[in-house]
Design a protein around this nucleic acid. Sequence first.
DNA 1: TTGAAAGCGCTAACAA
DNA 2: TTGTTAGCGCTTTCAA
Lengths: 357, 357
Amino acid sequence: MSRARYTHRVTMASGAAPASIFDVAREAGVSRATAARALGGYGSVSERSRAKVLAAAAKLDYSINAVARSMVTGRTMTLGALVADVANPFFARVIRGFSDGARANDYDVILVNTDESPAKEERGLRVLMENRVDGILLTPASLDKHEHLQAAVDRGQAVVQVDRYIPELETDVVVVDNYDAARRAVSRAIAAGHTRIATPEHGGADSKQEFCRITTMEDRFRGYLDAMANAGIEVPDRYRPKARHREGVRDAVLDLLRGPDRPTALFGLDDSFMLGIVDAANAENLAWPADIAIFGFDDTDWTTVLRPPLSVIAQPAYELGLCAAEALAARIADPSRPPAMTTLATSWTERSSLAPA
Amino acid sequence: MSRARYTHRVTMASGAAPASIFDVAREAGVSRATAARALGGYGSVSERSRAKVLAAAAKLDYSINAVARSMVTGRTMTLGALVADVANPFFARVIRGFSDGARANDYDVILVNTDESPAKEERGLRVLMENRVDGILLTPASLDKHEHLQAAVDRGQAVVQVDRYIPELETDVVVVDNYDAARRAVSRAIAAGHTRIATPEHGGADSKQEFCRITTMEDRFRGYLDAMANAGIEVPDRYRPKARHREGVRDAVLDLLRGPDRPTALFGLDDSFMLGIVDAANAENLAWPADIAIFGFDDTDWTTVLRPPLSVIAQPAYELGLCAAEALAARIADPSRPPAMTTLATSWTERSSLAPA
DNA sequence: TTGAAAGCGCTAACAA
DNA sequence: TTGTTAGCGCTTTCAA
């Protein structure tokens, strides 16, 4: 019986067990159900009861036990964020947007990093599902390995893919127009007079980690290739070295800059690629745009601190996360609605001239 | 009776309710207790039973319900991160470290942003406590308003303060040696020959948000003042304009650069201050270190992309979060141990010369 | 080694 | 409007 429990509590150290709804009900002189109704704001309660309950709750410093509530409602009011790496500024902004969107819909956010590793992704997914999150934001680690994701979706887990996506997975998707953004930016450079435009491609070996294909990078690269092709410009293989990470890109670009037919423009596929490109230009003592034009993805803080500031494609990272939260909230409310793909617009900000010297 | 429930389930859409430990037990032909012991790896179970249970679990695609487990164990194996803003690269790295440290101790992380607002902090704290997190990482929003934090600590909530702290709160603390780092860096600049060193101070009005004092910024500023005082250099008021955010700092520094007695060096108290300082130097077309020396806090990506790269104080942001997670794990394991303050070392990286022209 | 049964704190169906 | 009661899925005594 409950009595035993309360007798027990008295013998415990102060503050050990927080007041339960039972305590509040007793203090207020009503039943648990009435107390729950008053505190939860559902059902009907008389003004008098409500006042008594609220007073009792305040007196006892009552804090609802969300775990117990989840137990019976079957909903945790929690969303999972399974992203590559919060320390990456882009994902950090996505998560901020997701967090705000979740909050606006009364959800909390559990964060798990995958480091783009399918194995960690699988582990993280399991953890989130064990915690019975109501929905999951996912930036899939790999286009290829995703049986675990398929299994989760098959089980009915609400999932939204963000930034990149696995086409086979029938989930909501929130992305930006990567292909178009890249194609338009490169076309802009071509229109400005460039023909020798190089773009380090995402890929290549890495001792630490297997390579995982990502739609985002592939779409952007396709945009580059198509812009060049549309203009009738051939892209020599050496203008598209495969590289990863700031350092790898730096080295690849250095090779390029020191070799024959030096490109007149460099296009960066994301923030780390841009950093590597600028590193290489700095190392070769090239000024932009006089010696070389630099443009590419992600309008991070630092792009405006350079002299001159870089021309960039800005992604609505925050909105990506915000939309993802809204998509999940909508799907949870109506699981039967067909999966939707939301494509947010990027914006092109031309700062330093793109024209060749 | 349970039977009713299972009859019910059959009529539900496929995949609606995941298998419970009851289902696994039935499938394996053992009791719930035995199934739980086999699955949870506690108590004693015969090899034969264990095998049967594991096989049944695999067959039913069983996923333990962490909510139900928390209900009975009284632990959620979840930690809360109540930080200013994940989108801030510094906090993003702290959170990454925290997340890794949590994972290493089998905890998950719930993330809540406070935007340095005591009101949001209070709300976030309530949410986390309602979710019965086992511990909370906190970057307190304000030195002044913290009754809610005191209440949480009084209730026995495990808390670790990170980056900055409220001395009155008896909790574990993980910070860096802000005062020392600032004092040493400024002393270094003085030794290099500077006397006119200006430092925008954290403060001033903001229409959007009330101002909140933070130990971190105050410690750093004290370090600057003491370094100057120790060298017998007087700091005119105009060398310490109050400012906030990149833009505010930029404007304040512009004033300074355009006025009389232009400083020969600028010290930035954090990443956004550094950005504002560089913005101002760029706007005035000043080159560093020839026209003005720039140095300060946070070794972010972009400080090495400038030409020449900036001299900076690097904070172990990741380790800050990692240590916080360890501190919480230790406190949860032994709530009676006395609160400890961990101070991590910063490192000074001198890149561009600090010497005045 | 196993099983029966109590109960964690809450919600929700039903009855009064 | 209120109270009674039956669970949610799990862990954990206590017996067998």
